[in-house]
């Protein structure tokens, strides 16, 4: 499913005197099959944006009480934000939002804090119970087993365990399994690696790649870690104060190091080393992945020696 957002704006304190926009006029298209990154400093509107994709925050036109304002004389008709995901129009109050939510899975920050059931099995099955109540127990068991295996846990040994007895990393995997169990086409993760050690981060990113390969067509991650973005994403969007600043593939995005710095954002290690080399008069063209960067530097040295 393709995501098409147009002129998305949102304010948490609608109508109050200090209505600062958490999201301002964001127009963005995310294609099916992308591994999309969203970056921006804290409070830049990343979470607000992804909550729109799941209709947790509804568009004004999708509100039950919504009535279009009549345009005043001599003024153009008001334009409302629009958001279309696949065949679902999120600006339409008649859209089946429940079905949409089963197609667009969202894993919140620190998802392990929302575990609640007595067993891992029950917790993972929660989404199925809500979205796919027509399934038989056997069918549900198959789906739950697949989801738990897909996040890299051993189904037989964890299914009856209490989710609260697991380690931090395992809990996070269970929480992710609880979202992918309904087989969403789009999987969104809000800072999936937050609070993990470097190894844990690496494992989570590997997990997301394997999910992207054979589970969910589109993966969207919100991240602070530029290395994560440059290594993994097909494209990345940069938010600042609710506005969209860039939408570019990493290979082009991190050429804008000055602008990113002005937005208080970091750049990946490869981009930093590239700048340091450039200052010494060595210009290396790279797409900023570690592998490509190492290759290009190596090629440069070989060229010098020859």
């Amino acid at each position: 499913m393709r995501i098409q957002a147009e002129r998305l704006s949102y304010s948490y304190q609608a109508g109050s005197s200090f209505s600062a926009y958490a999201l301002k006029d964001v127009t963005l298209t995310i294609e099916e099959g992308e591994f999309f990154g969203i970056i921006g400093h804290t409070g830049s509107g990343k979470s607000t944006f992804v909550q729109h994709l799941n209709a947790l925050i509804k568009l004004p036109t999708a509100d039950k009480k919504f009535k279009p304002k009549k345009p005043k004389k001599g003024q153009p008709a008001p334009v409302y934000p629009s958001l279309v995901i696949g065949k679902y129009d999120l600006g339409d109050k008649k859209t089946n939002f429940k079905e949409l939510r089963s197609k667009v899975g969202i894993v919140f920050q620190y998802p392990e804090y929302q575990l609640f059931a007595e067993s891992v099995y029950d917790d993972v099955a929660f989404g199925l119970k809500n979205f796919r109540s027509e399934l038989s127990e056997e069918e549900k068991t198959v789906l739950v087993r697949d989801a738990i295996s897909a996040v890299g846990l051993d189904y037989e040994s964890v299914k009856d365990a209490s989710p609260f007895d697991l380690s931090g990393g395992q809990k996070r995997r269970v929480a992710i399994a609880g979202v992918i169990v309904t087989r969403p086409e789009i999987l969104i993760l809000d800072e999936p690696a937050a609070g993990l050690d470097p190894l844990g981060k690496k494992e989570i990113m590997e997990l997301l790649h394997s999910l992207h390969r054979d589970w969910c067509k589109t993966v969207i991650i919100v991240s602070h870690d530029m290395d994560e973005i440059s290594e993994n994403c097909t494209r990345a969007a940069v938010f600042s104060h609710g506005e969209l600043k860039f939408v570019l593939p990493p290979s082009e995005l991190f050429l804008h190091d000055e602008e990113l710095k002005a937005l208080d954002l970091d750049i990946p290690v490869t981009a930093k080393v590239r700048l340091a080399l450039k200052a010494k008069g060595i210009d290396v063209q790279t797409d900023f992945t570690e592998e490509d960067f190492a290759e290009k530097v190596l090629a440069y040295y070989k060229g010098v020696r020859a």
Binding site: Q51, N54, L56, K98, R101, S102, G105, I106, F108, P111, Y113, Q114, F126, G127, K129, N130, F131, G178, V179, T182
Partner: peptide
Amino acid sequence: ERIMNAQKARGAD
């Protein structure tokens, strides 16, 4: 609010 949103995303009503 956060937890409610998370469970709503999993279909809680």
